[in-house]
Design a protein around this nucleic acid. Structure first.
Length: 595
DNA sequence: GCCGTTTTCGGCCCGACTGTTTTCAGTCG
């Protein structure tokens, strides 16, 4: 165990953390501190420390308030005495004196300038010192009237790059991310064009956050091996989807597609493929930890392979070879976030991650009876054609009028149609269920007697998602405690890119689900992916069962299961953690026992 | 500011690309 000094920052047991101070908020503060220290020309390793601490906070599998309460902030990776004290101050008071003093010292508009491509702290400071520029608007003005060209070191090409960077930043706000389900097909299209180009391409793969399966994507990475890198680069930057060539060299090109997505291509000779793939799959924190491990074994690691102390080089043609060199088994890309996967690999304790082929059915789907577009039979046949043994029809309940929720009478009628489809398709099984509204007053949308007559009940919140945390949490916990409720669907209600998660206390829901035996859904719709990977891992750690469902409204929807599986894998889930990997008879017995 | 299978000091991941500063700093991933 690490033997770093411990200082007891444990808060008094009755001290409530400041509201709104969570992992993301503290991480943002740390990133802002790093940026402001950069402006002050502070030690770059100190700056890096704040950035690494921010990464830790964003990727760690638990809520920061847990280690805070237990006095073990300093046990977190990249958190030492000084940063632990700052986290503690933020949690106790909701603010941080050190941060406020920096804010007062750094001109406020400079941070926003660094959001523009090719503007870092040095460039922003030059613009500020020479032209008094304090904001993006002032930069725009200075570019328009030609003053930027008068600053020493700013030649015509630099000015042009600033113009393009500013235009790109205004067109596509830099924090705007694209859904995995949108970005991945785009990048696959580019890969296919290169593969079919007739150029001598040895291997070509998508890397980066797309390969790791992040739910949203900031940019794309393609890498390939070829004996003729320059020809591949030239073909790439000439592809029709390319809107702007940001840069290109002997082994690397960066372009911006017409829709704004930035894509990097790296090309190396074939013997480097494994090293290259590992390097550009990342994440940054995973790579840093891998290089730390290499250094501790007297090796240097880069995208070309390993370098021994005597300078001799060891290229790796496969990723397995990269990991093996460090005494590790291959680690799945979804786990490579620097959150304990290297330690787990070294100890032989990597989970056997769930795969799409583990799934035996889909438990959350809609038909024409509510807001779906297909009949129950069409949905069932599509599920059966996927090789599933069962599916559930779970149309909306009556309160969700916008989705044509079913009255008690209608859902009773629906039972007959389900029975008829089951007669047609046996041994495939359609479970008759409902997506039951958890109403704004906290009650459920059907009486218990109706719920008892259904095969499966999934409960969810669609209305009052903006209720304050205590209220929305109480509604969900009450639903968990109803013995007829089997699954809580899309618990936080988030819509990626457009609707923030509700204020639901997810940890409280996980704790309650653990005692009530309620299953938590990973909704596989690409825009939901709710639970997310962080809460999935907490649920897995707590021993709470998951259900991965597509929430399909038409027969084509089942293919989205891959996105739910990706979230589950990023949450370290195995098939054993997931209800709908079970065979039908085991599932039925479990549902029967719940009543 | 963090960290330790060369441990409490002296390191810190590593390289590509760009523009312009003719030898390298800035930015990015």
């Amino acid at each position: 165990m690490p033997a770093k000094p411990k200082h007891d920052l444990r808060p008094p047991p009755d001290l409530e953390p400041a509201p709104g101070v969570d992992n993301a908020r503290i991480a943002q503060t740390m990133q802002d501190i790093a940026a402001m220290l950069e402006f002050q020309g502070d030690n770059r390793f100190k700056i890096q420390s704040y950035r690494r601490a921010a990464d830790t906070l964003l990727n760690m599998p638990e809520d920061i308030r847990a280690p805070w309460r237990e006095g073990r902030l300093e046990a977190l990776p990249n958190v030492g005495e000084a940063i632990a004290a700052k986290i503690d101050e933020l949690l106790r008071t909701g603010s941080l004196g050190f941060y406020e003093r920096l804010r007062a010292a750094v001109p406020p508009g400079l941070l926003e300038l660094t959001a523009i491509p090719d503007i870092g702290p040095k460039t922003a400071l030059m613009l500020h010192a020479n032209l008094g520029i304090n904001s993006v608007a002032e930069l725009e003005q200075a570019l328009a009237d030609g003053r930027v060209a008068t600053v020493p070191g700013f030649g015509p090409k630099s000015v042009q790059k600033l113009r393009e960077g500013l235009a790109a930043a205004q067109k596509h706000s830099s924090d705007q991310r694209m859904l995995l389900a949108v970005a991945r097909p785009l990048i696959r299209g580019l890969v296919d064009q290169l593969r079919e180009s007739g150029l001598p391409i040895d291997q070509i793969e998508i890397a980066g956050s797309i390969r790791r399966g992040r739910s949203t994507i900031g940019d794309g990475d393609i890498l390939c091996t070829s004996p003729a890198p320059l020809r591949v680069i030239e073909r790439f930057i000439g592809l029709p989807q390319v809107g702007q060539v940001v840069g290109h060299g002997d082994h690397k090109a960066t372009v911006r597609l017409r829709n704004g997505l930035q894509v990097d291509l790296m090309v190396l000779p074939p013997e480097h493929f494994g090293s290259l793939l590992h390097h550009f799959t990342g994440s940054r924190e995973h790579n840093i930890q891998m290089r730390d491990r290499a250094l501790s074994q007297g090796l240097k690691l880069n995208e070309y392979g390993f370098v021994h102390a005597d300078g001799s080089q060891v290229p790796c043609a496969t990723e397995e070879a990269v990991f093996a060199m460090l005494g590790l088994p291959w680690i799945a890309p979804e786990l490579r976030e620097g959150v304990g996967e290297i330690e787990a690999a070294a100890a032989g304790r990597l989970p056997a991650l769930i795969t799409v082929s583990d799934m035996r059915g889909d438990l959350h789907n809609h038909s024409k009876w509510s807001d779906g577009t297909a009949t129950i039979e069409q949905m069932a046949r599509a599920a059966r054609d996927r090789g599933y043994a069962y599916m559930a029809i779970t149309d909306h309940s009556q309160s969700l009028t916008i989705a044509h929720g079913l009255t008690v009478e209608q859902i009773r009628e629906q039972a007959a149609e389900v029975a008829e489809v089951n007669r047609l398709l046996t041994p495939f099984r359609v479970l008759h269920g409902v997506e039951l509204e958890i109403k704004t007053d906290g009650t459920l949308d059907y009486p218990d007697g109706v719920l008892a007559s259904l095969d499966i009940v999934i409960a969810s919140v669609h209305q009052g998602l903006r209720h304050e945390g205590e209220r929305v949490t109480a509604r969900v916990l009450d639903a968990c405690r109803n013995p007829h409720v089997d699954i809580i669907a899309h618990p936080t209600g988030q819509i990626l890119g457009s609707r923030d998660p509700s204020a639901l206390d997810v940890d409280a829901m996980i704790a309650t689900a653990r005692t009530t035996g309620t299953v938590l859904e990973i909704n596989a719709s690409p825009e939901r992916l709710d639970l997310n990977e962080v809460y999935t891992r907490r649920a897995v750690d707590a021993g709470v069962l998951l259900s991965i469902d597509t929430d399909s409204h038409h027969p084509d929807g089942f293919v989205n299961i891959e996105y739910g599986i990706t979230v589950a894998r990023r949450g370290w889930a195995s098939a054993a953690n997931v209800l709908n990997t079970w065979p039908l008879d085991r599932l039925l017995a479990w549902l029967q026992a719940r009543g």
